[in-house]
Design a protein around this nucleic acid. Structure first.
Lengths: 253, 253
DNA sequence: GAGTGGTCTAGACCACAGC
DNA sequence: CTGTGGTCTAGACCACTCA
């Protein structure tokens, strides 16, 4: 049998011993590599199941199982009749979503974001470290304040490496509510995934003033690192919001 | 062909039209019903794949797919060579888990819980409503304080319907750290699932004193409803913890 | 109509558990 | 040894999409 594209150790279950890793997992890795290396980017159509089956020399059932797993992991989505695509990151899954989107009567409420600061310059060393750049690297800083029900509810602080997003700090560059669309379309930086950490703390003076609450009232802090291909961080973001407007529900089994 | 156990509308894909629901979903519902009705309880061994295949008159591949989905949903777990079992609820998935389990050096730290209050009586109407009982129903109340690193870190308040857990309020009934084991083993109440809601708020006087923090310092509040069979609530619990000891991380894709 | 994913079948062999 | 789940194959037909 010829060597196939899948790295090594191909076999039907029968002939071989030493089957360290199931075949379908190799198919998964093959696809994952294509995504993480940037060979395929979010929104792309991947090879069809029969094609993958032929090219990788595995049965179509095995391909289906591999794709099932990747769909389940959120890396791919299927569309019957069209094909299988690389997922776009879905920030609706962000914990941020649990800042209340509805008033007491359950009526849906609009969030308005206002850009309140925007400049180019050096950032604190803690941010540079997270962005994995030198301390004297030029960064772009953005602050946006989110209003829910005409009431300032959260503050979003965002840091970018300036060389990756030229002119982002300029007033002419319009910042849409769906910020990441700008990054993907304008700057051709695919956004692959993000990590978030949620904590709560007491409100400092400047945040208290902006959110129109007392100093030391409880606020929810959401730290986010946003990743592009090859696991490179492109943005560090901190969202601080009024705790009384936040609640997060989940089920345990 | 004879009618099978699966409610209705059985067919191979070919002969019939009007296939509202895929076969594997019916198999899933068949199992789910057995669990929710109490016919099977957490820890039970379910029928093997070949048995299910014969009894439900579907192919073994279809059974596998159904069980795969239920495993993925957390209702079942498999053990090669042994069989497939109904999951025990895993409170390690609780958000509570994100109260720090390690000190600064990353050394793991033990949590000690002390029962600080325990009595039988009437509860506030808000609790009765959540438990779906009359306001004059006898309840058992428990308070436990959790210490991490010899420092009080969270307070657990728990309400039960007294008639379901006789003598729980008595001192002779030892309360183990893994509380729910007692409920399942002693009182034969299967714990099926739980719902949690996370918020943050400012610390009230009494909590401040118990946690040894200033009044109005931020605390994380975790409300939990615990369910037994037939979606009946058996416990209402509120955990309040020092916000500075809490952080919750997740990935978005 | 050609191509895609979605469902389903009917087997095979392997690895593991327990007697 | 028998029975369990885990992997894999090689098909079939269906439902959907788009040209």
């Amino acid at each position: 049998m010829m060597d196939s594209i899948l790295s090594s150790n191909i076999s039907t279950q029968k002939g071989d011993s030493e089957q360290a890793q199931p075949l379908y997992q190799k198919v998964e890795e093959y696809i994952k590599n294509q995504i993480n290396s940037g060979e395929m980017t979010p929104g792309d159509l991947i090879l069809s199941e029969p094609r993958l089956s032929k090219e990788l020399e595995v049965s179509i059932g095995t391909v289906k199982k591999a794709l099932d797993n990747l769909v389940w992991q959120g890396l791919l989505y299927r569309h019957q009749g069209k094909g299988t695509f690389v997922s776009r990151i879905d920030f609706n899954n962000s914990l941020f979503r649990f800042f209340s989107y509805a008033d007491e009567k359950g009526k849906e409420v609009r969030i308005r974001k206002f850009t309140t600061e925007r400049w180019l310059g050096k950032g604190p060393s803690s941010i540079c470290e997270l962005l994995e750049v030198d301390e004297d690297t030029e960064l772009v800083f953005l602050e946006r304040i989110g209003h829910i029900n005409h009431q300032p509810t959260f503050i979003e602080n965002s840091w970018w490496v300036a060389s990756m997003v030229p002119d982002l700090e300029k007033e002419e560059t319009h910042i849409p509510d769906l910020f990441y669309a700008l990054i993907v379309d304008q700057y051709q930086i695919p956004i692959i995934r993000a990590e978030e950490t949620l904590t709560a703390e007491a409100c400092d003076d400047s945040t208290a003033e902006k959110l129109n609450v007392k100093k030391d009232s409880p606020i929810v802090v959401l730290n986010r690192s946003t990743f592009t291909i090859a696991d490179k961080i492109v943005e560090i973001r901190t969202t601080k919001g009024r705790a009384d407007q936040f609640s997060y529900k989940r089920e345990i089994r």
